[in-house]
Write a protein that binds this DNA or RNA. Sequence first.
RNA 1: GCGGGCGUGGCGGAAUUGGUAGACGCGCGGCGUUCAGGUCGCCGUGGGCGUAAGCCUGUGGGGGUUCGAGUCCCUCCGCCCGCACCA
Length: 835
Amino acid sequence: MAKPPEGTPDRYDARAIERRWQELWDREGTWQVPGPGDPGFDPDVPESYVLEMLPYPSGEPHIGHLKNYSMGDALAHYRRRRGMRVLHPMGFDAFGLPAENHAIKTGEHPAVSTNKSIEEFRRQFLSWGISIDWRRQFGTHEPRYYRWTQWIFVKLFERGLAYRKRAPVKWCPKDQTVLANEQVIDGACERCGTPVVVKMLEQWFFKITDYADRLLEDFKLLESWPQRVITMQRNWIGRSEGAEVVFQCPEPPVEFPVFTTRPDTLFGATFFVLAPEHPDLERLVEGTPMEERVREYVQQALKESVEERADTQREKTGVFTGRDVINPVNDERIPVYVSDYVLMDYGTGAIMGVPAHDERDFEFAKKFRLPVRPVVEPADRDASADQAFVGHSEHERLINSAQFTGMTVAEATEAIIRWLEGEGKGHRAVSYRLRDWLVSRQRYWGAPIPIVYCEKCGMVAVPEHELPVLLPEVEDYAPKGKPPLAAAQDFVHTSCPSCGGPAHRETDTMDTFVDSSWYFLRYCDPGNDQAPWDTQIVDYWMPVDQYIGGVEHAILHLMYARFVTKALADMDLVGFLEPFANLFTQGMITYGGSKMSKSKGNTISPSTIVERYGADTARCYVLFLGPPEHDADWSDDGVGGVHRFLGRVWRLKSAGGDPLVSPGLDDLSGAALELTRKVHWAIQKVTADIERFQFNTSIAALMELVNEIYRVESDLRDDEAGEHALSFANATVASLLFPFAPHLAAEVYERMTGARVSEADWPDADPALLKSDTVTVVVQVNGKVRDSVEVDADVDEEELKRAARERPNVQRHLDGQEVAREIVVPGKLVNFVVR
RNA sequence: GCGGGCGUGGCGGAAUUGGUAGACGCGCGGCGUUCAGGUCGCCGUGGGCGUAAGCCUGUGGGGGUUCGAGUCCCUCCGCCCGCACCA
């Protein structure tokens, strides 16, 4: 095609187009969506809730946000044009440490810096043109929101699901606060990387362990979640079945229950180990000659960091306590040790040592020269004396185990549990790795925990009508061993809501993950000031039909939100058990092969790209980069390619005929027919690819279609049918491009048709135009492609074989050889097998 | 150590059910438009041999199933992710 004629608006001015449509959408409230009870609500329209994880507003949005919201927005647009009422809201996860640390450094109130960030995020999201119902926006730091976060806390407290206890907890010395187990990564603070230490502290917990089984079972209610996210949660919950077995200490008389997944190996127990933190340890050794050494060892063990202690490579250590316990199955006395390889966190903090069948116990036995007694016979190899045998298939049978000898492992497990239960020495048990969720934080920038301590009444929840408990102003945000709120005297001193007597407030704030564990409910009914939501409205929209976000939330946020939803369902506050029916986890965008970070100076700012190329280019590019679930590396050159493509769309020129109606098969021939077929192919391809989140190939298909339009355009300008085909093709490009490049597509669509693309139905492919009258059939000889032949689509097999044989190159390869077999795949290929 | 995923041109990546490997884009090369171009348009582009027609070869390595394998099976190698003294 030659250069566009002088004087036409040939330059693709993304900035002007985007400004125009953003203003129009805002003015007309295009993306506002009514819910039940709102004017214009029609109950017969199917609903869809499309949600991207809410952003944490810090600085300005990064490329990951752009990708996240570009995907969600594409889907929201697509579903709207499929006739659905789509809830597509936005909010901000505004409480949290970075804003507070910033405040400590600069003195700027966290609310000030957070609100600035929110404004910047909002400004950029608007500049991206994402189709959000902005009337529903909120920040989790606003009293109108955290009032209800506190309300939920109180509800959980009333049900015994929020409780306070003294427990060994993970403490970050840098951030000066406790952390949830889920926030400790490799023994270090998730936020700042400082190695955490264990402290005995009284803290607030949510009883998520009550829901362990339901969190596992209800995976079956999820429609489509990535398998690996489910696996990660399953591993985190860590359910194990086995038995609790009681070992009796004769002197002093103490009972030690242990949890084991292998009750079948009870006869192989040759020693017993307590965790250094075990509460009965002190009593066991008090006044004995071993007291000094045990105490020393415990001191040593407690000093270790979480990370050091988790190191599986190092040699086992421990100390004999001088005491014995009795193995309930054979009344044998076995020695009790203390060792740091036994964790107080899991099971009962005590274990039976079965060195023959447990690798860790084996190592310990070797170190302390303890006997190794095999009780399970390996099925197909000799029990090696220098390692533990851990096999427990149906082929392994018990030895050295009294009346259980000869049973398979499974039989013996059952029989021994039943025997223990009969003797009152143990019972069937299930153990979990999951711990209760520690939700209190000794920090400022969070929702205050709505609890008051009264001298007479004890712990009292702040009543509903007194909520929110407002976050007080303080002068110093820095924690100094005490939470910052403790310094706010007016805040701390209060009266008991129950008896009116003197009382003081809880000064810890809530983990920000509490804020984000219910925000998706608030979007449904954001203006409600009587209740956190109207159950009927929430039940209308929920569960979220498509949730999109980073895989880094696989455990934390996604598990907490599931737990809170279930707890609310149990209180009849919501009518569903799972918050997110479908989950999509997007991959990261890297730059130069590594994660973008300000400290490395390898960041790409979305605003730079938007300013240079426009939002449509930026959005299309992040989707075109590759499969959205994979990590992808940003390429500066690649953006230009997508921008060029959008420029080509911009320069499509209108033609005659009705652009909204496809020319029919009967009116078409030649290039016009081929182009119209390509259009219908693209409709089908783009539709199918959006449905399976393959935005990259959707865009590639549109590129193909546009290339085709440019190739044939000059041939089609001669007659009416050609003009019509062209006209329809151009309008359809704009229509299909809309979910990815909404401004440009709206502009081009309007130019081609005079209509609003956002109001147009999503196009349907005409099956008659998806088929071709002729097909290219590949001809192989012995599985090697030798030629291809163009035949009628409905040609019969014999005719096809004849045509295939006639190809000169096929003849050359068949020449003088005997055809042993002929394989025909209709419409695809013919393969001649010769000897 | 356990669990999961992935290996395709110079690069990012395509390839519903086994049926023309490399769509689309970047990069590179050629031609045209242009005063110029970091513009736009058209064409070419896995490797090797060949003037060409064409032939050989090719999806991490090796083996297998099949008329036919990127795709299915076995095995080895490499990379990534998750969990990790959980009894």
